[in-house]
Design a protein around this nucleic acid. Structure first.
Lengths: 233, 233
DNA sequence: CTTGACACCGAACATCAGTTCGGTCTATAA
DNA sequence: TTATAGACCGAACTGATGTTCGGTGTCAAG
């Protein structure tokens, strides 16, 4: 995600999107954007939205109407985080935290709770405060937290009782720490992910421990680990 | 515009909408709401959205997909929706966040920096945001943070780059996780502390590893570990 | 018992809105 | 010159999404 220069039209679009969300509380449609910036075709807007996504300014959700979200542009620009803009809250990056729903537990013997996109999170009332700095430049969507049960994650340097913050995703980049379900073993584990041809190398975070190799079709990424919180005593 | 008398379903819907916006950056569709709250028909959702609008909780925009807007609620009202306050973004003026000075690094080969080494805490401009829930009911005095360098804390389940939050103290209770300076070895380590007669048993957090025993006079407690923060990627 | 308000259901319906594709224009490189 | 890539255009296509409407069940008032 490179933050490259924007064309005049792309800048206009970005400003319009930001204003629109502030005013309405929901993002504009492609046609609304097109009308605002004087694009004569929806495909032009679609095209430039993809460019904005390429350059890391926005994120798109395919086949979802108004499926746009602004990504934070700098550590100082937390005002683009969801929710803040509409309520006029402008926290400085150094002083804001996010509340992430604690949706269950993670253990070697059980799959990660896979909350359906709707119909799950909303009734959890257990929220974990997470400082934004722990989430890096990530956008703050699709985050959830799990409490570690048992000592089975020790080779990931994760202890019983730790809370892991994950982002729900089904694909991983090499080097990502991910929660994966291994259907052959009936096992959930936290490992670093490396695609190597037909196989996936799953590398424990503990450098003294050995990786395992699993056929790619039997590795189901459940989410990427963004942070681990441990409270002692 | 009354602000009361929400049915169970309407409450659920409201909570869901807030969460959804927080996570996605745009409001849900009628069907997404329906699925979440178990309404079998879109018309039911439509109906209850109108009720929520009547009661002043939301605003609707006709014939616009995801045309929902949450209306600001009074503090009292917001607090009746556990965890939804401020849509996840909490200013630090709330007492839920503490700023702890990052005073240096911790490595096996070096003593823990003392305040004398780094000047007075408040001169440091590197402050770590720590949610209070990670610190328990502790008093917030004499806290400091260290960044872990090297893999030497692996047996404490602490990885390179982790940030440990400590409280400055020179005595420890049995079972406390502490940072100790072992003068015989010229080494700093993180272990669980157990006084056993003339000796101290220092137990690694990793249950598969063996404790070490050190004469009490050669164990110098530097501080007690309250929390560990790990950010990945 | 009848009535009416209320909440809900199911199924259509119309249109809103993202996607795709063939094509044009322009600047730059070969 | 020709070739290529980026930006743009217009139209069609398909799925997503808000709306409407006839109907059911419940409950309390009359």
């Amino acid at each position: 995600m490179k933050r490259k220069e924007l064309s005049a039209r792309q800048k206009k679009m970005l400003v319009f999107i930001r204003r629109f969300i502030e005013r309405h509380g929901y993002p504009p449609t492609i046609r609304e954007i097109g009308k605002a910036v004087g694009a004569s075709s929806t495909s032009v807007v679609n095209y430039n939205l993809d460019r904005l996504a390429d350059k890391g300014y926005i994120e798109r959700v395919p086949e979802v109407s108004r499926g746009l979200r602004l990504l934070p542009q700098s550590e100082a620009d937390v005002s683009t985080f969801p929710g803040t803009q509409r309520l006029g809250i402008v926290p400085s990056s150094a002083t804001s935290l996010l509340q992430v729903p604690l949706v269950g537990t993670i253990a070697a013997s059980a799959p990660v709770p896979t909350p359906d996109d709707v119909g799950y999170y909303y009734d959890t009332d257990d929220l974990i405060d997470v400082p934004l700095h722990l989430l890096g430049a990530e956008d703050a969507y699709d985050l959830f937290a799990l409490r570690v049960v048992g000592d089975s994650m020790i080779d990931a340097m994760v202890a019983e009782g730790d809370i892991v913050i994950l982002r729900r995703q089904t694909v991983a980049q090499n080097g990502d720490m991910v929660a994966v379900w291994l259907d052959e073993r009936g096992e959930t584990t936290l490992k670093k992910y490396y695609q190597e041809g037909e196989k996936v190398r799953l590398q424990p975070a503990n450098p003294t421990m050995q990786p395992i190799y699993v056929p790619a079709e039997h590795v189901h990424v459940q989410g990427r680990v963004l942070a681990v919180l441990r409270r002692l005593q």
